[in-house]
């Protein structure tokens, strides 16, 4: 368990900004699910729960999710269930139980860029932007490819478009971390294939996505594309599975996801 020496509870984002500038080593408190696993001594902690960041707003074109929105809120949100085949609620629904999901926050889950994340593949399959206090707004892919700098994630903005999405995962046990996951989306003619928990962080299989996008509708061989994805991405071994098994499973999950999108 971590310990906190001093705590700040700002009410506005501009106060947050001042604090972040004043204390370069400030630690943002999300739902504390992951923080709790460490015995870190936190000199300065920042609580965002009074900054109006715990709401999901639906606008004409976007769904905006505040950083302090819990995974449970996402799971239950009508808009997120209605759009994108409910891929995001589906992805979070595998994470432990409702009580945990009522604690864990989306901001932390995205900011921390976990390799095992169920959330990142689903978000990458959508047109997702992240909003950072200092870094400003940027596409999620760009954020993920940047090295972690000290910043605060404030919002996630998803463009409402009529894409079809499938989310797939493989776990040894129900409430376990995924040993591999995949998301596939199709927006108009454009496909995106994402594979995560390799165990490295979710990544878009760019070549395979292109291959699928360029093949004429109806002539897609999902198996070939899935194979291409498994060749293009790198896989590693850890306690949950070996690299070879992950690579083989990548083919299965991607194929299933493509077929679900086409169904």
């Amino acid at each position: 368990m971590f310990t906190i020496e001093s705590l700040h509870q700002p009410q506005t984002l501009s106060e947050v900004k001042q604090l972040v500038e004043k204390y370069p080593d400030i630690t943002v408190l999300g739902g504390c699910g992951f923080l709790k696993l460490s015995s870190r001594k936190i000199p300065v902690a920042l609580d965002l729960s009074r900054c109006e960041l715990e709401k999901i707003h639906e606008t004409e074109q976007h769904i905006e999710i505040g950083a302090m929105v819990t995974l449970r809120d996402i799971e239950k949100n009508p808009a997120l269930n209605q759009w994108f085949d409910g891929a995001l609620p589906k992805a979070v629904s595998h994470i432990l139980g409702v009580q945990f999901r009522s604690c864990a926050t989306i901001g932390a889950s995205v900011y921390a860029k976990y390799g095992f994340s169920d959330i990142l593949p689903a978000l990458l399959a959508l047109d997702t932007q992240v909003e950072l206090l200092r870094g400003g707004r940027m596409p999620l892919v760009d954020f993920l490819s940047k090295p972690i700098t000290r910043d605060v994630l404030t919002r996630i903005v998803i463009t409402k478009d009529k894409r079809r999405v499938s989310y797939q995962n493989l776990r040894n046990a129900g409430a376990d971390f995924p040993l591999l996951n995949a998301a596939v989306s199709k927006h108009d003619a454009e496909w995106k294939i994402i594979v995560g928990a390799r165990p490295a962080r979710a990544e878009i299989a760019v070549q395979a996505s292109k291959l699928l996008t360029s093949s004429a509708y109806g002539t897609v061989d999902s198996g070939t594309v899935a194979m291409a994805a498994s060749m293009e991405l790198a896989f590693g071994s850890n306690n949950k599975a070996s690299a070879e098994y992950r690579q083989a499973m990548c083919q299965v999950l991607v194929k299933r996801a493509i077929e679900e999108v086409l169904a």
């Binding site: 504390c32 609580d47 009580q99 945990f100 009522s102 604690c103």
Partner: peptide, 18 residues
């Protein structure tokens, strides 16, 4: 598990001040 505003939450993971 306890309820916060009627919803089940892990009290081991919920900071008291919150």
């Amino acid at each position: 598990t306890v309820w916060i505003d009627g919803k089940p939450v892990l009290s081991c993971t919920m900071l008291s001040f919150r």
